[in-house]
Computed example of a mutant assay.
Amino acid sequence: MDLFADDSALMPIPIEDGELWFQQRLALDLTPAEAMQRLLDETDWREEQIQVWGKLHMQPRLSAWHGDARYRYSGKLFHPLPFTPLQLHIKQAVEQATGRQFNSLLLNYYRDERDRMGFHADNEPTLGLNPAIASVSFGSPRTFILKHRTLPKTVKLALGDGCLLLMAGSLQHHWLHGINKERAPRGPRINLTFRNILREP
């Protein structure tokens, strides 16, 4: 199933076993292109080494962790840098659009079509039982894919420049999500995922 919403408000996308919401353009005081360039310039991007199935790998993207709490995933403990003024502005807009509060931010920089995100669920105990994950994208569009854990169901959503995606409810228990590498050339993309850490690891 291929989905793409075209609305200025956060709208629900019908999905089993969880909540999925999409907004075509998050309301900000700057253009997506301006936000993209500032994020590129103001972020201390790192190529992290993570553990997957007992083996160490370099992540196929660059990343950064900001906010108020430490975070552990893929066998690595991330210590946060403070929110930047731009990140706080985007966070405020996300909280207003979603009605949720967030204290942490993971930034991922996809340099081209070869960079990707493996399929996973954001289900770490530090996020609570049914975490809300808000994702804002800038730059070249990429296809976000959700795969149900037990049912033969797949959802594909084109994440374009300046869009907002919210995953909530029991979605992380029942679905995996990721972004595949692509054959067609793709320009750079930055994705911000806001989350609320309830307790530090």
Rank of each mutant, 00 (worst) to 15 (best):
G162H: 06
L28A: 01
Q24L: 13
L77D: 07
C163T: 08
R100F: 08
L107W: 09
P60R: 06
T126C: 09
F83A: 07
F194E: 01
C163M: 11
F119E: 10
K156A: 14
Q37E: 13
F102E: 03
K147F: 04
Q96T: 08
G128T: 11
G169V: 08
P131I: 01
E16F: 01
L159V: 14
P131L: 03
A93L: 08
Y71K: 14
G160M: 03
L198A: 07
A97R: 12
S104Q: 10
Q101P: 01
D115H: 15
D41G: 08
P131V: 00
L157M: 10
N180E: 15
E19P: 05
E95Y: 12
K147I: 06
G67A: 02
H120V: 04
R142D: 06
H79E: 13
P125R: 15
L10M: 02
H174V: 04
R189A: 05
I133G: 06
E16C: 04
S104H: 10
D17I: 01
Q96K: 14
M167T: 07
P185I: 12
Y73D: 04
R199M: 08
I90L: 07
D17H: 14
I50T: 01
L164P: 00
G118Y: 13
G139V: 04
G54V: 12
Y109V: 02
L146C: 11
P131C: 00
E182S: 15
S170Y: 02
S140N: 15
L28N: 04
I13M: 07
D29T: 14
R38N: 06
N103P: 05
T31R: 07
H79I: 08
S8Q: 14
T154V: 13
E47R: 14
M117D: 09
F4Y: 09
L106P: 03
L159M: 15
Q101A: 11
T43S: 10
L164S: 00
L88D: 00
L39C: 02
R46E: 11
L157P: 04
P152N: 13
R38I: 00
A93F: 11
Q37V: 05
M167W: 07
T193N: 08
A134F: 03
Q51A: 12
V94D: 01
T31G: 11
P14A: 06
L20A: 06
H174Q: 02
L86P: 11
M117C: 09
H120A: 07
A97W: 12
L28M: 12
I13Q: 05
Q24Y: 12
V94T: 10
F138M: 05
I133S: 00
L81R: 15
L62D: 06
K147V: 05
R72D: 04
A132G: 08
C163N: 11
S140Q: 15
F83N: 08
S140F: 07
R100P: 02
R195Y: 03
Q101E: 10
L86I: 01
N123C: 09
D112F: 08
L20D: 05
R142G: 00
Q101K: 14
A134L: 01
T98P: 09
T126E: 15
G139F: 02
E182P: 01
S135C: 07
A132Q: 04
F144M: 06
Y110T: 02
W21Q: 00
A134K: 09
H174Y: 11
S63P: 05
S63W: 04
V52N: 09
D122H: 14
L164D: 00
R70I: 00
R195T: 04
I197K: 12
R183D: 15
L164R: 02
